[in-house]
């Protein structure tokens, strides 16, 4: 799964370069996130601004990533598009993540 990983303002920022997090790539997503997280101890911002489709398998993979990072590191979500936001809201999983409208807001929000 294609991602770009960089360090910014003490966060590890992982930007997905894919339009879909679905059942076909859910395992790949989890592996990719583990790899992106392995060298470091920063909190992770997942930039989802390019993702336009997520299903329940993709949602489960994001939850699994948060559980894998806990308790020492958190997973922060940024840039959710409307269809992604809808799945989080419908399943009420929006209540368990820190969610920011943009990557910029996530970076500054944490330092406000």
């Amino acid at each position: 799964m294609e991602v770009s990983v960089k360090t910014e303002a003490d966060f590890c920022v992982v930007a997905l370069r894919e339009q879909r997090i679905d059942a076909a790539v859910a395992l790949d997503f989890k592996d990719t996130m583990r790899q992106a997280a392995q060298d470091g101890d920063q909190n992770i911002i997942l930039d989802l601004s390019e993702v336009t489709f997520i299903d329940s398998s993709g949602l489960g993979a994001i939850v699994a990533t948060m559980k894998f990072l806990a308790p020492d590191r958190s997973l922060i979500l940024a840039g959710m598009t409307a269809p992604v936001d809808r799945v989080f809201k419908l399943t009420r999983m929006d209540s368990v993540f820190a969610i920011f409208p943009t990557l910029g807001a996530a970076l500054s929000g944490q330092h406000a």
């Binding site: 329940s56 489960g60 939850v63 948060m66 559980k67 806990a70 308790p71 419908l90 399943t91 368990v96």
Partner: peptide, 16 residues
Amino acid sequence: IEDLPEGGFGWFLIRD
């Protein structure tokens, strides 16, 4: 966090 569900959302979404 460790008790959060990773699945079981599919049929909820269908019925919703």
